[in-house]
Amino acid sequence: MNPIRWALPLSAALVLATGCSKAPESSAAPTVMAEARAVSVTQVVLRPMAGTLTASGLLVPREEAAVGSELSGFRVAQVLVEEGASVEQGQTLAKLDPGLLQARIAQAVAALAQSRAQAKQAQGEAARVAGLDGTGILSDEQIHSRRAQAQGANAAVQVAEAQLNDLRAQERRLLIRAPVAGTVLERMVRPGDVALPSQPMFRIARDGLIELDAEVPEAALAKIAVGQRAQVELASGAKFDGTARLLSPRVDAQTKLGRVRVRLPLDPALRAGGYASVVFSREASPVPAVPEKAIQFEASGPLVIVIDEQRRAQRMPVQTAGRADGFVAIEQGPPVGTSVALGGGAFLLDGDLVDPVEARPTASHAQARN
């Protein structure tokens, strides 16, 4: 067979085979590029932000006084104040019926007069035997008896005086007086009620001061200091400036919440028992932050989409803090300088290839970079 005749078809076959083997390599690069999704990205930057912490609680009196009767068994004759009244220290709030006590006082006065008369007589008899000791006119036993009677009569006068003074003191307690100046929070007595020492009649907020008793998570309690500024908002929307007055020395073992007392100004809109929220603020300091659009929220909590050096997406949980001017502070998360996806990253999955597009910085973002 002629070698030229079979060599030509073989060469053509080799050329075709070579061309077919190179075709997939040339089309692979466009396929990979087609998988990369263009996504706007930004970086975690250091940004001066004022730290804030939000909590809530109930409005309570700064100091509360419970007012009741020290006497038992006396009926209430008059109630002189209502809830919400402003009272002065020592002001009469209610009066008890004095009828029963006045009869006992009259008896004590008569008993005292009788004791004094008997004492006067005994003292006179004792005076008449003065100097008769050893004279034989009266026996020593009679002389000592008269002197003992005089001493006993004087003691009886002192007892009668003490009993009368006790009744006089009870008479003064028939007037229920305010132990402190302030605002009457609650009135729990009516005319005709029988006074009992175990049952308070009034509750008074000392000096009318109301403050917020806020519940704060254990981890956040260490970030609050006495004197720190706070803004309290009532359910009505009214806002008041306050300061942290007292930090609880203990944390509830079950709820893991501590308490912070927030001092508030004197205002009639502040009512004990009302609900309020509070925002504690601190001075601005540089903290890692990202734009709000970079934060995504899932059932497990907030997260960001981190773009690594291989342009691969990776979902990373974060712990956020305060917000200001469109930025969110990051307490736990990627370090400063890390690239993160903006709003378009919501459709990315771990490992997705990304074609990063640097987002145009806003004025505040450019200022944070500088």
Score class of each variant (00 low, 15 high):
Q151T: 15
S21L: 15
A269M: 11
S72H: 11
R177H: 11
R177M: 10
K293A: 15
A244S: 06
L58P: 00
A324L: 14
A106P: 01
I210Q: 06
F240V: 01
L164T: 11
Q314P: 00
S115F: 03
A65F: 02
S236M: 07
R116Q: 15
L14F: 13
D308C: 12
F347Y: 09
I4P: 00
S11M: 13
V157F: 02
E161G: 01
Q319S: 06
G84E: 13
A195P: 13
R128T: 07
L58K: 14
A77G: 08
G343C: 00
R360M: 08
L247R: 14
S248R: 03
S300F: 09
A294G: 02
Q123M: 12
G124W: 12
E35A: 09
F297K: 01
N2W: 07
R323A: 05
P268S: 06
V357T: 06
L234M: 05
Q199I: 15
E309G: 06
L164Y: 08
A65N: 05
V129T: 09
V76D: 03
P217C: 05
A269D: 10
A77F: 04
T338R: 01
A359I: 03
Q121V: 12
A17R: 06
N2F: 07
S56P: 00
K120R: 12
A160F: 06
Q91E: 11
L196V: 14
A103S: 11
G134V: 03
G237K: 03
V76S: 07
Q89W: 05
R75Y: 04
E82H: 13
I137R: 01
G51W: 10
A284D: 04
V44Y: 05
V232L: 07
R282K: 10
G57K: 01
E283Q: 12
L16W: 05
L257I: 07
H144M: 12
L353S: 15
F240H: 04
I305A: 05
V189K: 02
V278G: 07
G73A: 07
V357N: 06
E233H: 09
N165I: 02
K223E: 14
A289V: 04
E331F: 08
L16G: 01
L174T: 02
M33P: 00
G99D: 14
A178E: 04
A294W: 11
Q231E: 11
A289I: 05
A294D: 02
V336C: 02
A162L: 08
V157L: 01
I137V: 15
R37W: 02
E283M: 02
M49I: 15
A106L: 06
Q332E: 15
A238L: 13
L132Q: 13
A12Q: 05
E141S: 14
L349S: 15
A329E: 15
Q163S: 05
A119F: 06
A195D: 10
D166W: 01
E358M: 03
A289G: 01
D241L: 07
S236N: 11
S26T: 06
P217T: 07
R369K: 13
V279L: 10
P356K: 01
A321N: 13
A106N: 08
M201W: 04
D166I: 02
A153V: 00
R315Y: 05
T31V: 14
A169P: 01
R282A: 14
E35I: 12
T42S: 15
R271A: 13
L46H: 06
G73K: 03
G337V: 04
A276C: 07
A269G: 13
G152R: 14
F347G: 08
L16F: 08
V354A: 08
Q114K: 13
P217V: 04
